[in-house]
């Protein structure tokens, strides 16, 4: 029983990590209908910038939380600039191009970011300093530590803030208008380019937050970390219904749970024929089943259509 509970805790933590990254995908998709495949790399840059800041400030003697805050601000700033740049250079000129053209530029951006990061930060794996409290708690036989609790809470808080932003503010209304019908929104006086830029910057700031959370949890960063994380988060976003904020959260948590329960129990369920090596097969299998019955994800399509 305590093993099952532990697996659920593991799944929720891992799922929150996916959800944080998936929210970034979904923000952009909700407005533009475009999968920002470079999002995973922005997460990586966020983590790397934060690493550099903490290394610079390590000798300053500031309390860890202050260092973390400064690192967060800097890396969010860098990521926002990066997000703005990516949109301006790689996506905006292609807004009326065939649907797959931005996919290729996104792949190009990913390759460029990865290689730039390799030049700046080297090929090594770096240890990410433990700035958040790491003390562990027992929860009915399952272990959870502070960082993990913080990750779950941050993911929920970010989702709540985004929901408020999209549904309760002027900017949010403009976003929904652009998502619904860009030309009509422009006629109504919405600055489409401005709204899209802001969306990208918001998504990228989220990526920075996600990057720091992931690094703080696993304690290790590397220029290649964005690729696999981005892929998983993308899967999570689609599972929940891409473009839907609640869907991204749900998809993330679900994917995390499927993975940990799959890895934990596949062996017992299949009489030892399949093991934890089929964890991803199991996850994709669930995804395919879900999409067969609900072709646009668990919670449906884009934000605007629901609003």
């Amino acid at each position: 029983m305590d093993i099952l509970l532990q697996q659920i805790v593991n799944g929720l933590v891992q799922g929150s990590v996916y959800a944080l990254v998936a929210l970034g995908y979904t923000m952009v998709y909700g407005i533009l209908g475009l999968i920002n495949f470079a999002h995973g790399e922005v997460v990586m840059v966020g983590a790397m910038v934060a690493l550099t800041m903490t290394q610079l400030l390590a000798a300053s003697g500031l309390p860890p939380l202050v260092i973390l805050l400064i690192a967060l601000m800097t890396s969010a700033g860098v990521c926002m600039a990066l997000g703005y740049g990516i949109e301006r250079i790689a996506y905006r000129p292609l807004r009326n191009a065939p649907r797959l053209a931005p996919l290729i530029t996104a792949i190009g951006v990913s390759i460029v970011l990865q290689n730039l990061a390799m030049m700046f930060w080297g090929r090594e794996y770096h240890a990410f300093p433990a700035l958040l409290p790491h003390s562990t708690h027992m929860l009915a036989g399952a272990v959870i530590n502070d960082v993990q609790i913080i990750i779950v809470l941050v993911a929920l808080a970010v989702m709540a803030c985004l929901l408020l932003l999209v549904h309760r503010t002027r900017l949010g209304r403009a976003m929904r208008a652009v998502a619904e019908n860009p030309s009509a929104a422009a006629l109504m006086g919405v600055n489409i380019n401005g709204v899209i830029s802001v969306t990208f910057m918001l998504g990228s700031a989220l990526a920075a937050v996600a990057g720091i959370m992931v690094s703080a949890n696993y304690g290790i960063v590397h220029y290649y970390m964005g690729a696999i994380l981005g892929l998983k988060a993308f899967t999570a976003a689609v599972l929940g219904g891409i473009g839907n904020l609640r869907g991204a959260m749900l998809g993330g948590l679900l994917l995390g749970l499927i993975e940990s329960l799959g890895a934990g129990y596949i062996g017992d369920l299949s009489g030892g024929f399949f093991g934890s090596n089929y964890q991803d097969v199991f996850a994709f299998f669930v995804l395919i089943i879900v999409l067969i019955f609900r072709p646009s994800g668990l919670m449906g399509e884009r934000v605007a259509e629901r609003a």
Binding site: A90, G108, V109, V112
Partner: peptide, 9 residues
């Protein structure tokens, strides 16, 4: 990577 971007643009 740059070539991919430039060609598509």
């Amino acid at each position: 990577g740059l070539a991919l971007i430039v060609v598509m643009l």
